[in-house]
Design a protein around this nucleic acid. Structure first.
Lengths: 134, 134
DNA sequence: ATTAGATTTAGAATAATTCTAAATCTAATT
DNA sequence: AATTAGATTTAGAATTATTCTAAATCTAAT
């Protein structure tokens, strides 16, 4: 877990703010939410710039885009690879930090004939909160 | 691999057609493409009905929705669980038919504290066609 | 035939994302 | 300090994706 100085990545102020917002958030925000939060730090920022910045930051590997059936994409500070769990009751999205079984990527690559770059999975199930509510 | 008679699922004609279109397609279609193809079989069908049918068929487990960053959801005949590979060069989407390593779901569930229902992954990499083009 | 409930239709409405053109900024050069 | 080229931002329009609404139609059970 390495400290990354957002002030020093050679980003424009707008991109810095967008990255800051995503880093500070405890949840996975939509583009719209990123926009709302960014305006608090940089009132003049425009919607298009948020989208541009999201694309830029994604291409640069600073953030990751997550999407599920239904609704807008969400964004995630992409400092390292991780997986997701999504609750089929309430829709909550959680991160999973674990190593993959050694053979998983190789197996998937051999089945698909793709040259593998990365693999990420989504676990569908019921989150602890919803389990407790029954 | 079991034969399923689409004519006999107790579906409305519109839902039958939507399911037929998805089953017949060799690729993963967007809602828009499903609509276009459905019109060929049932000219009067409306866009809203295609969306309604997609939701219905998804809830009933006949089809699955797949979404990635960027663009519309795609739909897949969901007769059985499978994974996907997506090409980072050309965007092509392929199915992966393989068993998961035994411990994968249990491991993911224990890390997330979710009660697991299903798990699917996406392999990112370069597809055979793009590899050949270099 | 009647009726209640579900489904479909057409089109409007909303939400998500991208595009456009003009203005601004940045960094490199005079 | 002025000039310039290229990248970025802004504002808002445009496009694309999805959902909603209300009236019409269908279905199955009386």
């Amino acid at each position: 877990m390495q400290f990354e100085d957002i002030q020093n990545l050679g980003l424009t102020k707008q991109r810095e703010v967008v990255l800051q917002v995503i880093s500070d958030a405890h949840e996975h925000l939509t583009a719209n939410e990123v926009f709302d939060n960014s305006k608090k730090l940089l009132p003049g920022i425009s919607f298009a710039t948020v989208y541009n910045s999201l694309r830029f930051l994604k291409d640069a590997g600073h953030i990751a885009e997550i999407s599920f059936g239904g609704g807008a994409s969400r964004f995630d500070r992409g400092t390292h690879r991780h997986d997701h769990a999504i609750c089929t009751k309430c829709g909550k999205l959680a991160d999973i930090e674990m190593e993959h079984p050694a053979e998983l990527v190789a197996l998937a690559a051999s089945y698909s004939k793709f040259k593998p770059e990365s693999l990420e999975f989504t676990l569908r199930g019921i989150c602890p909160d919803c389990l407790a509510k029954v």
